[in-house]
Design a protein around this nucleic acid. Structure first.
Lengths: 208, 208
DNA sequence: CTCCAGTTCAAACGACCGTTTGAACTATGC
DNA sequence: GCATAGTTCAAACGGTCGTTTGAACTGGAG
């Protein structure tokens, strides 16, 4: 194959999702990004317009495949009748952990980036994440409600928020102060543990 | 009572935990804090030494009563034999939500501050939170392990981390993009829902 | 070759950052 | 009264921030 040289724009996006994922939006300067990307500072404003626009582009690029896979699984599940809670939880959690963690080093970077943005201190930035996943959110809520008819809408929403939160938490790797100590070495194990944890909580922990 | 005028030091701590809780550490400037506290910028370095030292003092002051209450409950539980998982979960979650949310406006500010610091993008700042709650962490882990003898140590640690994460998440109010829409109006209700959720996950979701 | 749109570049812009300085104010003990 | 320790103050320090500028380079089209 001919050498697929990364464009400046791609290098900026790659470095941005790595640095933003490590230090957060406010804690990462454009100069740090452009130096690591071997690009000029002005390139950010040329290709994206502003620092926040660069973040927006990085968020969109990182989340697109994850949400596409979620949509695909949800379509498939709904085509086959009424899915069980576990199937829905898998369809949400696994794309966020596996699809992204199985891609080696780069996948882990993307996962951390997504998880970090979802809980950024700034509300405006958190809303970038929320806006990106909003379209399928209502579909998931409706499907979960149907799978858990005994639970109130508030309870279902509570469970969904907890699922989203725990997923982003493990994606961001903000837990385990000693790196590599508390987290399982195998991303697949982590996904399995998290699904089991959430399924139990949904099945028995939403109040009757 | 004679007017309990707040000292400059107290006003700085109060405003700091409010602003740091809203915008995060990097996103909040000392000038914004000192203006809101009606204090001079130099007062921060006079009373605390640096911006990070101010944060450290605010974290210590905010978490002290929460962790003290946790210690007290844990002592009481262990004095009465082998506590059930639910009792341990309550002893951890309720001080973080109720003890702090029942104090009206200021309590909510403290809760958000704690929750935000626990997930700050910067590792050094997250460790301020971790260091503050580390002393009782091992006690909780041991007690949980004893209450759940069928679960592996890794599984117990996994559950503990999830409990800590979900608590901080609800404390920080980072969820529910539409403020006041998704969260229950009654903090007590939230604590009850979260305990139920976690108890179910611990009892049925840690792998046999 | 000329032209030109696309891209990169060094350099500078004003604004804001955390921190420091040294003088001025305050209250208490002598 | 005076001295003194504690506290507050306006002002400035050097540095970094995101952004902008205008010229220089690039490669293909006419």
């Amino acid at each position: 194959m001919e050498t697929p040289v990364e464009t400046t724009r791609e290098r900026l996006l790659n470095v941005a999702e790595q640095r933003f994922g490590e230090g957060g939006y406010e804690g990462t300067s454009l100069r740090a990004i452009t130096v690591a990307a071997a690009a000029n500072i002005a390139a950010v404003n040329y290709h994206f317009g502003s620092k926040e626009a660069l973040l927006r582009a990085a968020v969109a690029r990182a989340m697109a495949p994850v949400n596409a896979e979620r949509r695909r699984r949800l379509d498939q599940l709904e085509a086959g009748g009424s899915p069980a809670p576990e199937a829905l939880i898998r369809a949400f959690v696994e794309p966020g952990l596996e699809l992204v963690l199985r891609r080696g080093e780069r996948g882990a970077v993307v996962a951390r980036f997504i998880g970090r943005i979802a809980f950024d201190p700034s509300r405006r930035i958190r809303e970038l994440y929320a806006a990106e996943s909003e379209p399928i959110e209502s579909r998931y809520l409706a499907a979960l409600q149907q799978a858990l008819p005994q639970a109130s809408p508030d309870a279902v929403a509570f469970g969904y928020v907890n699922m989203l939160g725990l997923l982003a938490l493990h994606q961001s790797q903000a837990l385990s102060p000693t790196p590599g100590a508390a987290g399982p070495e195998d991303p697949g194990k982590l996904a399995e543990n998290l699904v089991t944890f959430l399924v139990a909580a949904f099945d028995h922990g939403l109040g009757s």
